[in-house]
Each structure stands twice: as structure tokens, then as C-alpha cells.
Design a protein around this nucleic acid. Sequence first.
DNA 1: CGCAAACCCTACTAAAACACTATGAATTAG
DNA 2: CTAATTCATAGTGTTTTAGTAGGGTTTGCG
Lengths: 172, 172
Amino acid sequence: MRLTTKGRFAVTAMMDLALHDRKIGDPVSLMSICERQNISISYMEQLFSRLRRHGLISSVRGPGGGYHLARPMPKISVIDIIYAVDEHLDATLCGGGENCHNQTRCITHDLWYALNQQMLNYLRSVSLGDLVAQYANRQGGVLPPLASPARRGRNFRNAAPKRKPEGARDAA
Amino acid sequence: MRLTTKGRFAVTAMMDLALHDRKIGDPVSLMSICERQNISISYMEQLFSRLRRHGLISSVRGPGGGYHLARPMPKISVIDIIYAVDEHLDATLCGGGENCHNQTRCITHDLWYALNQQMLNYLRSVSLGDLVAQYANRQGGVLPPLASPARRGRNFRNAAPKRKPEGARDAA
DNA sequence: CGCAAACCCTACTAAAACACTATGAATTAG
DNA sequence: CTAATTCATAGTGTTTTAGTAGGGTTTGCG
């Protein structure tokens, strides 16, 4: 399935966005998301670009700009997010085709196919709304405060992390 | 979860072994497996080494040697095989610890953890016996013939594949 | 107007992982 | 003894990952 930090970051950022995108006409800047979640801005820009092109978020340019969810939270599933940034989470291990062994399906084809369906179904069954609800529940029903726009110093790029390996690189 | 060709090859080879390991005292040589499944022998040796160290197979050295399943098929689950060759299919994306975000668990921790449990449970629920039964069923209940030991020419190494990319590299 | 905050885009890169290959040693049947 | 086989370890080319770098474009605001 290929779950990497890309997918992880994307989901994390979308959750952060969902948690802070509570007033219309008041978009959430990428910088604020990255600071909260400790992710490189430049890297995240690429992921958000894809999320936008896949219609999961909408953007507002110019000062005070940022992002909105393009759909209500329950209408965005985790699979949508991962697929947007990772693309080729191809159904089977054989790349969709059934040419795994010479020109025929390999003897384990069904296994991988079934496994993949399991994962996809699960990820499809979980929406951003579910994640947010679960998070809120864990926090005792308290959502994080809405930060004021807050002007920052210039050269915001490169402001971010230098996150070390810190254990896992990919996973799931 | 990190499903790569390593895990795929390992399961495939184990299935092949299971299908041909039907007489005790008549081990299945790696070469025969690799020829049938079209896998590089030298590569497979490494995987089988790990399978053996994990107690899934036993080996017989010397001419006429080869491998046996170390346990009855129903007692070997797919997760055992994948774990043997891939190791670190760490439970959470945070590498087991909960230090994904600074020193606390990240807001998506539960998601990845749950997803991982899904996959592990599935793979744990499928045994080699299941795969073989399924395969036999698909073949109309006919198991492949037991090939005679068959002496081959020397320099059997490098005899194998040159398998091209052929589509997918990793997956699931 | 013009500055700067934000989004947008593309190309580049160090490091890791992957998928092998190569080589040789140890074991043992015939 | 010879050769078939397993066992072990080191090396290697390619791909992917996880970013950086460095611009550009839009637009609110003074």
C-alpha cells in the first residue's frame, strides 16, 4: 500500500486544517499548520498542491489567504487524502494487471488483492469527520482555540523543523 | 506496513514449498522453487535464511538437500512469513513509541495504529494451509505433480531470471 | 502605487531502501 | 573426491523518499 510520511503528513495536516477551518472567509494559512504540526512548509506546499488539485481543499491567495476544506469533513475520507498525495496505491501487487507470474496471475495474487481491499475499505470507511470527532472526544470535547491571524516576521520559509529521523520513516 | 517484493516472494516461495513438500525425507531444493516461480536463487537464499532462522522451515544440507516446512501448514500464517523477511512492520507509524509529535502522540496516531491492526489481523488470519487450499480449489482439486529430484548441470547460480520491472515494484 | 503575505510551481539533491549480484565457505550424498 | 546443495556476507545499480532551493503569481493594505 505504500504508506509513507507523505500520506501521514497529509492526513495530519488535513486534520489540523479541519480543526481550524471553522469560520468561512477565514482561511487557514499553511504556515500556521506547519508550525503547529512541525512540518517543513516547502514540503507541505507540494502536498497541499496535490490536495487542491484533487479537490479536497480550496485556496485563497494573497495576504491573509490560506486554505479551506472544499467539502464537509464527513465527505472526505482518509483514502481520498492518501490517494491525492501518493497516487499509485495500486490495487494489487501486480500493478493492477494479472501478469505477476509470467503472463498469468501469480499463485498469491488473490491474497494480495484481498489484503489491499481490506486496507482500502478501512481507509475509505474513516472520514476526516471521524478523526476530528475522535480527537475532540479524547480532548474532552474541547477544540483548540482559534488563533488570531498573527503577523509574523519575514522569511518564513526555512523557519521549519529539521526534523530528525526520530524513529520511523515509513510504516503501517 | 511495507509490503515489498520481498514479502511477496517469500509467501510465493513458501506456497511453492508447501505444494511440493509432501514426502518426508524428500526436501525441496531452492533451485526447483526458484525455477518454478521464476525468482533469483541468490536473492531467495537470503529470504530462506531468514525464514529458517524464524523457525518456519528446516533445511537439509548436501546433495539432494533442500527445505521442509517446519510446521504444518495451518500453523504458519502469512504474517509469520512477512515478518520473518521484512521484520520491522512496526505496529504504529511512530515506530511503536508514541513520540510522533514532539514527545507526544500525534493526532493521527490512533488512525495508523488501527489501520495496522486491521492489516495484521487479516494477515494473521490467513494461513499457508488456507492459501494452498484456495489454490487447489482453483485448480480443480489437482495438486501439481511431484517432480523427480533431477540432477541439473553445474553453475546453477545465475541461471535465474533477469526479471524486468514488469509493472509494480512494491505495493499493497 | 508598492510592499509583503501568502499561495503556486519546478527543479534539484542527499540519503535511504530495494532488489538484487557476487563470492566464497560449509556440509554431505554418491 | 566431487559436486550439489545450503549458508553467509559484502557489494552495487536503481528507485524512492523526503525534503531544499529558488523562483513566480496573486492580492490585501497602507
